[in-house]
Design a protein around this nucleic acid. Structure first.
Lengths: 159, 159
DNA sequence: GTTAACGCGGATAGGTGATATCCGTGATTC
DNA sequence: GAATCACGGATATCACCTATCCGCGTTAAC
């Protein structure tokens, strides 16, 4: 079981966007994180389709957070980039074999699937409780309050 | 993000084993669930390596649960079949780019990673709370108390 | 002792999805 | 008109899951 590596990129980018003052091009976001520009663009497009991020085309275009940072959960980003499908997919093997479960019984998911779905629900709930604003605050604590001013400086300069 | 399909097979097999009276060959388990015998064997070997299941070689061999069913959690099975690695893998992109985080700061995982790990912990904790015995009980409730006697009959007969 | 059933590990394909890049198009600003 | 940028499609590569087969050692039955 492996999450798409793009999720890490997307979350970090959202934190940067939450501290930026204007639209930030994909080029800039990729350069700042030392990652592939073209591939990051794909994930940013996914964020855009999900409504998490808004894009501005044209010369001074780029990406901006659509909602305030405290209204964007990590779960929103994960679902947008990694997809909304559950990790566990029930194939209903209880309906196979010599003693298959009846159609009546199979109207509700089996016990195995229910356990898996509950666990994923716990996972999603945990991710839903953390916002991009929370992450930005944790960065300030971890690496210092001067980080984001420096970031804004870098984003503005080096044109 | 997708869990290995073998997890579903393995969990169902463990439920069957918890209700069987003796060693059950992979052949039988596969036939009962209507799935590939050779591929299921691979997953059963993983369960065996993890100590969840014990194998008996030879003519009347097969698989038995090593521990009592109420001491085998769903998490045990998932980790054995799907691997123990986390779904989220931090690549430390905060160390890249023009404003890299210092070595000192990076001694602990970044905020993004901490959130992801906490969510996985919630997921694992949820799976850890459910045992094979619980699942067997839910089967009795869902499809009826006569299910396991019928299963034992099928396992014994049709030699 | 021979045979048959069974678990185990390695080797081997095939298929699917993630990763990564490139190009053309359209929009916007200068 | 030129430069910058988002967007979508096409493509190529790669890793991993899925699935099968074979040879080997073990055990019980005949």
């Amino acid at each position: 079981m492996k999450m798409s590596g793009g999720v890490e990129w997307a979350v970090h980018c959202c934190v940067v966007l939450s501290e930026a003052e204007g639209p930030v091009p994909a080029q800039r976001l990729a350069e700042f994180h030392g990652i592939s520009r073209t591939y990051l663009a794909k994930h940013l497009q996914a964020l855009s389709r999900a409504g998490i991020v808004s894009s501005t085309e044209g010369r001074v275009g780029g990406y901006v957070l659509t909602r305030p940072a405290d209204q964007v959960s990590v779960l929103d980003i994960v679902l947008a980039v990694d997809g909304r499908e559950q990790a566990f997919r029930c194939t209903e093997i209880r309906q196979n074999g010599p003693l298959p479960a009846s159609q009546e019984v199979c109207r509700q998911p089996c016990g195995v699937a229910r356990v898996m779905y509950a666990a994923e629900q716990a996972w999603r709930s945990s991710l839903k409780d953390v916002t991009v604003a929370d992450l930005a605050a944790s960065v300030s604590v971890d690496v210092g309050a001067g980080t984001f001013p420096a970031l804004r400086g870098w984003l503005a300069g080096e044109g």
